[in-house]
Simulated assay, not measured.
Amino acid sequence: MPDAIFADHRLASIYDAFGGDRHDLTAYLDIADELSADRVLDIGCGTGCLAILLAESGRTVVGVDPAEASLEVAKSKNGAARITWLHGDATAMPPIDADLAVMTGNVAQVFLTDADWIQTLQGIRSALRPGGHLVFETRRPERRAWEEWADEPPTTVDVPGAGLVEQQLHVTAIRLPFVSFRHTYTFLTDGMVITSHSTLRFRSRDEVESNLTAHGYLVQDVREAPDRPGREFVFIAKRAA
């Protein structure tokens, strides 16, 4: 089940306000150009920020997400009509012959069990055309991002239509490779408080490469995230024949 931050309608409606300008997505547009990808599958598309940018560049885009509330936000945006939106996950994708599948943000880390992760990789592979690519990012475990999260102060944003909203992040458990945390949102206009609990799995580079190789991919490159050097791996893998 998706975390409340994505699945709760009130939280989904303010998600973009706390996400910033999403300049991190530019790298994915550049990779789509590099790979000459015309048909793109955005897995865990959330509120559709990347999917809409890809569609605006003239590509055919399919966005899939298990959180219906996030998809509703995505569908309400300008340009959303160009995109095919699917409610679900990557384990049951139709064979769409995508040139490229992407997972941005923390999407690749929400699959906590080996079975869920492997089923996701297999589902994506079935949705790619022969020779199509999977590109995704994942946080470097050695960077220990959770130590920075523990020091983050509350953030208050004036959200159009919602007023002032305060966000607090608390790390609740560290049992590597798993890290759990809680977001607490306080809507200052009416005092409503909503919490969202999340857990991410931090896989090493070797583990991810082994998983990809074992399940039908050729790892072509492992890069830095250009806007977050030293913090993440960006994997570029090709569907093996």
Rank of each mutant, 00 (worst) to 15 (best):
V234D: 04
P154V: 10
D16G: 06
G230R: 08
S36V: 13
D190G: 05
S180T: 13
A214L: 11
V179D: 06
L11E: 06
D21M: 07
R223W: 11
W146M: 14
A214Q: 14
P66Y: 01
L164V: 00
R231T: 08
P229F: 08
A12C: 04
R175M: 02
L134Y: 12
T113N: 09
R144N: 05
T195W: 00
I52P: 03
T113V: 02
N78I: 09
V165I: 05
H183R: 11
G19D: 13
P66C: 05
F18A: 10
T213I: 12
H215W: 03
K77P: 02
Q168E: 15
P2A: 14
P95A: 15
A74W: 04
A69K: 01
P130D: 14
E152L: 15
F202G: 10
I14W: 10
W146N: 04
L134Q: 07
V107T: 15
S210Q: 14
A127V: 10
M1N: 12
V234A: 03
L128F: 09
R10W: 03
R143N: 06
V208E: 09
C45T: 14
E34P: 00
E68P: 00
D21V: 13
I96E: 02
L29H: 09
Y15M: 10
A32Q: 09
E232N: 13
S57T: 14
A51N: 03
Q122G: 01
V234C: 09
D151N: 12
P226E: 10
D8V: 08
D65R: 05
Q122I: 12
L53H: 11
R175W: 01
